[in-house]
Design a protein around this nucleic acid. Sequence first.
DNA 1: TTAAATTTGTGCGTATGTATG
DNA 2: ACATACATACGCACAAATTTA
Lengths: 255, 255
Amino acid sequence: MNPITEDSAAQALTQAPAPRRWEAIASELRNDIVEGLLAPGARLPNETELAQRFGVHRHTLRQAMQSLVREGFVQVRHGSGTYVRELVLDYALRRRTRLTQNLAEAGESASRELLGAEEALAGEWAAPLRVSPRSRVLLLRTRARVRGRVVGVTESAFPLPRFAGLAEAFAQHGTVTAALAALGVPDYTRARSVIAARLPTQAEADALARPLTQPLLVVNYTNCDLQGVPVQAASTLFAADAVQLTVGPDDWDAA
Amino acid sequence: MNPITEDSAAQALTQAPAPRRWEAIASELRNDIVEGLLAPGARLPNETELAQRFGVHRHTLRQAMQSLVREGFVQVRHGSGTYVRELVLDYALRRRTRLTQNLAEAGESASRELLGAEEALAGEWAAPLRVSPRSRVLLLRTRARVRGRVVGVTESAFPLPRFAGLAEAFAQHGTVTAALAALGVPDYTRARSVIAARLPTQAEADALARPLTQPLLVVNYTNCDLQGVPVQAASTLFAADAVQLTVGPDDWDAA
DNA sequence: TTAAATTTGTGCGTATGTATG
DNA sequence: ACATACATACGCACAAATTTA
C-alpha cells in the first residue's frame, strides 16, 4: 500500500490536520478491551496479523501497542504474545478505607461517576446510621471504574439535614472523602464491614457490565467521623472477577 | 417440650424399638433440611397439612415441630407459618481467627470432619509458607458443618517434617487449633486474609451440597506461630448462602 | 535433550507531512 | 521561499524469548 495516496486521501476527506493511524488503532483496541470484547487474559493476534487487519505496517501497529502497554491495558510477553491485562484489584479493608484512593493505589487510574441522588426515608439505613427510621437520608448511587472498566457500584446513605449539600459536593470533587471534607468532616474511619457473595440481579449485572453468572462481592459498611458519629452507611457491589478483598497485618498493625 | 421424655427417648432408642412417631417425623424433616430439600427461608406446609401427610394427629406433629425449633432448624411465626431457619453465619476475620470456634460462637453447634490427608510437594503453598517449592507439605482437607449443614470446606498445607503427625492429631481432636497445640504450637495468629468470590466447580458444589449457581466465598490465609513462622496456609470455601464475613472494630481495637 | 516454528524486540534506511523560524 | 527539526509511516533483516514437536 502507498502512504502517499492514503494520507492525501484522508486529508481530502476530513481536512483534519493529522490522521495518526496508530492512535486510531490503539483507541479501537482499547475500546474492545473496555467493552469486554477482548476478555482479560485473552491473547491478541500476533503483530503481523493485526497489522494486516488494520492495513498498516507492523511498526505502526507496534506504536499503538506500546501506547496500550503504557496505559496498562495490555501486557506483551516476548516470544509469546500480547495479552489483555488481568484486572485483579486488591481492595484493602482498613480502618481508614477510601474507595477511590484504594483502587488508585494499585497504580491504576480510578474514576468515580455519580449515577443518581435522591432524598428518602432512612428505613433500612436507620440502624447503621443510628437515626430514626422516619428521619430522612440522602441516597447516592455511584459507580467506580478502573482502566475504563466498571468494577463496582455503591449505594450510600447520608443522614439529613447534616449532609444536605453532599450530592453537589460529590459531583464537584468526585470522591466521597472530598465531598465530606467540604461539608466539615475532615476525616472518618470505617466502623465495620460485612462481606457476602451472591449472584447479581439483572439490573446489577447491567450496571456492572457483567454476565448474570458472574458473582458479586457485597461489602456493607459504616463510616464514622472522629467523634464516632456515623456519617455514611453504604453497600458496595464489586464484580468478583475484578476485585479481591484483603484483610491483613496492615490493618491490624495500624494503630 | 419435655426434656424428660426426650432423654428417655434417646435411652429407649439404643435399647428397644420404642416407635415414637413424633421423633421419626422430626428426624425426617430434619433430614430434608440438612439435605437441602427444604431450602433456608422456605415456608413449610401448615401443621394440618403436614399432620395429614404423616398420618398423625396435629398434636403429634406439633411435638416434632417443637423439637426442631429447639434444635434451631425451623422458626415458627405465629399466624404466619413455619420456616426453615436461614443459616447466615457471621465469620469474623480477626488476628486470632479459629474456624470451629468462630462458627460455634454464634451459638451454633459446629463440627469438623476430616476428608483426606496426603503428603505432597509444596508447589503453590511454598510462597505463603515461606518454604522451598520442592520441600514437602501435609495437605489436609476438612469440612465444617453447622446444624448438620455443610458450610465450608478447607484445604490446608502444613510444612513437613515439622507437622508430621498432624493428620492423626486432627483426627483425634477435631480442630486445627487442638492438633497444632498437641504438636507444640500453643497459639497462632492470622497473618493475612484474601477474600474472593466465584462460582464453584462441580466437585466443590458436590462437597458443599450446593447447586452450581451458588457462589462461593473464597478465603485464602496464612497462620503463623508466636515467632512469626508460618505454620498453616489454607484456602477455605464458604457457601455464600450460609456465611458472611465481618471485619470490624473488634479486630482493629484488639491490641 | 534438541531442534524447529512462532512471536516479539530492535536496528537501519527511506519517505512524507507538520511545525518553526 | 527555504532550511531545519520532528513525528509518523513503510520496507527489510535479524536477534532474542517462548512454545511446541
